[in-house]
Amino acid sequence: MSDVFVVTEHLQGELTETSFELIALARDIAAQTGGRVVAGLVGSGVIGLAAELGGADRIVVVDDPAFENFSPDGHAAVYASLIEGSPIVLIPYTSMGMDVASALSTTSGIPLVSFCTSISVDDGLGATCQLYAGKIEADVEVAGDRAIFAVLSGSTSAEDGRSGAAAEVTRVDNPVESELRSTCLGLTEPEGGDVDITSEDVLVVVGRGIESEDNIAEAQEVADLLGGAVAGSRPIIDQGWLAKDRQVGKSGLTVKPKVYLTLGVSGAPEHVEGMKDAETIIAVNTDPQAPIFAVAHYGWVGDIFDLLPELVDKLEAD
């Protein structure tokens, strides 16, 4: 009769997709343990969001001005108290969840499994995890009968976690007495650039395989010939070779173009999260083991610098 607790997250008044994915996973687990799905909702002025969490059986809400913004140590401290009584805890493996999961595990001693894509409860607690940037999949087992699972976004369908049903809502006072040691000074929205990659039909996406800023010109040529735009993986943006609004993935944008052509992108889970629903994914990579080939619809194992001139030729002749 083990309850399954879900840490939900929200930003600017909106629950994230991952929150619903975790509720969907929790429903599956609870069906096997015979327990309930309990969702935690922590913020300020968030009680209204509880209506969207009908996929849970019970929602525990801490609605307190102290949590007007996400507080890394504050949220961890609140959840340490909220999860008591729930042997299985699911936390999004996201920017917010990362600050919560490891802190909960360290202070409570409950084992934590990261990078989970699925969870099993039939023969003890276990999970399947994506390690080494998606290059290795591992089945792991947890000692004991309590566990915290940090789950990758996109592990299941968010739709299955949504429900119009009304869950039991319990409001609890902020259990954290100590003063928060970090203060949020405010949020910053990304600056809009010249191109909105979320509305392009064709994206030519460069990864670290492109090697230098100068080489991006050739990818740009292909994008121009196709009437599309160039986007990039995180390292390309961190290098300053493309603007931040060209980044696809977990900390960038989610895109669903007609065609997504990757050039030297390995396909780390954080990248895949932002592009897996593109209509046609074509991947080019020298490494046949690259995880990008697991999500691509078409793949070519080879060197982008051999391919690019040919591609430009073919498109010009077309």
Binding site: Q130, I136, A143
Partner: peptide, 26 residues
């Protein structure tokens, strides 16, 4: 409290059509 039972290289190209040939054909 976490033990790896088994690891594998995820099957890549499942459902993906791999394009053969040289760069021109590709």
């Amino acid at each position: 409290g976490v033990r790896v039972v088994s690891v594998r290289v995820p099957e890549t190209g499942v459902g993906a059509e791999m394009i053969g040939g040289d760069e021109e054909a590709a």
